Each structure stands twice: as C-alpha cells, then as structure tokens.
Amino acid sequence: MQRPVVSLEEFPMSTLEFYFDYRSPYSYLALSQVRKMDVEIAFHPLELGDLMVRVGNVPTSLTCEPKGRYVMTDLGRWAVHYGVNLNRHPLASEIDASRLLRATLVAGQLGPMSTAVDAIFDAFWSVPAPLSTAADVAALLGTVGFDADELEKRMDTPAAQALLEQATAEAASRGAFGVPTLFVGDEMFFGNDRLNFVQDYLAGAA
C-alpha cells in the first residue's frame, strides 16, 4: 500500500525537511552539518533527474564542462571546511541510484528512515560498500537493523517506484528545483551553501 504524501501540518516549525538524492555530493555535505543542528529532520528522497524534467531545470555541472571542473574543486574545499570524508563510490556510475531512493522509502515504512539515509550516504560518499544489486542494498540496511529480506522483496516493485514518483512530484509542487532543498515550515532554502540562513531562520522560529 502506498504511503500518502504528508501534509505540512504534520511537521512543526522545529522540523527541518531535507529533500535529497544520493547522487548529490552537496546533499551529503549538507547533511553532515544539518545533523549538528538542534532540530528534528524529516527526510524526503527524490529522483533528481525526474524533478528537473518536471520543473524545467538542467544539470549545468554536466552540460557545462568548465562548471563541472570547478564543482570538483568546490566539493573538495567544502569537504575540508567541514572536516568530512568525501570519497565517491568507485562504481557510482553503475549503481542504480533510483533503487537506493526506493529502498529508503520502503525502509521508512519498516523503521526509522534516518538510519537508512545515513547508511546509504556513508556507503556512497564516505566508505564504499557494495550497492550494485538489490541484495547488496538490503544487506547494507540489514546491518543497521532493517529486515533485509523484506527490503529486497519490495524495493524494486511498482509500488516502490510509485512512492518515489509521488515523492518527487510533491517536491516539485513545493517549488524544489534541485537538491539539497531544505524547508522550515514554508520557508525554502536551496544548497549546501545556504545552511547559515537555515540556522538563522531556525533561531528566529524557535
């Protein structure tokens, strides 16, 4: 059964909503700092490519070669600034990232989504772990307390794909155009480099 898209009323002002795709290194970097904030985090996995199509955005770091080169330098600077390990999975281009997102949504129906998010982000961007198959992803999440058999059975089903499409459509309807996108109430913030604004807004909303 599909999990309905939640209404904004379900999240108090002290909750930060975090929209992400595992393919985004800036989402990984942003989460490393959001975790340090004194705020409840509600996670929203989304399919970045689908989101961009829905809102008419384009991945300029891929279509513009000079920007793509700069982004690699920029990412290294942010990783040093935050003191985090940024180590892209050596098989990243071969991993079905949509499966990772579907697995996360299913995991959220079985237990704390936050635990699944941390495990997959770490495996993709910090300490590489096998993620090539559904069994790999299920095994990884099994190590952090999820029912691996149930996850493997459900993550590649049409129902799981429908959850991902629904989540992406919901993000588009709220005005998201990329990741990471963060909301506090109706206030939207985009990008790893806007976290100081998030903190200021949270302080004012407290």
Rank of each mutant, 00 (worst) to 15 (best):
S132L: 11
W125V: 14
R99T: 08
A107T: 02
G76A: 13
V144C: 05
D96I: 08
N87V: 04
N85Y: 11
G83H: 13
P128L: 04
F121V: 10
A135F: 06
T104Q: 07
E152C: 04
V106P: 01
K153I: 07
A138Q: 02
T73F: 14
F124T: 01
G108R: 11
D149A: 15
L140G: 00
Q161T: 12
Y82F: 15
M72Q: 15
L75D: 03
S126L: 08
I120N: 03
T104W: 08
R99D: 02
D156H: 11
F124D: 06
S132G: 10
A148K: 04
L75P: 04
S126P: 07
L141N: 09
A103S: 12
E165G: 15
P128A: 12
T157W: 04
S126Q: 08
P112K: 15
W78K: 07
L105S: 03
T115S: 08
E150S: 11
P130Y: 01
V144H: 05
N85M: 15
P90G: 10
Q161H: 12
A119I: 09
S126D: 06
D136T: 01
T115N: 02
V127S: 15
E94M: 12
G83C: 09
Q161D: 06
L163Y: 04
A148H: 01
A97W: 14
N85L: 13
R88N: 06
S93P: 00
L110V: 10
E150R: 14
E94G: 03
G145C: 11
K153R: 14
G108E: 09
Y82L: 14
L163D: 13
A135N: 03
L151E: 00
S132C: 10
D118N: 12
D156Y: 04
A103N: 06
D147S: 01
L91T: 05
A148L: 05
G83R: 11
Q109W: 06
M155R: 09
L141A: 08
R88M: 14
V80N: 08
V127G: 08
A79E: 11
S132R: 15
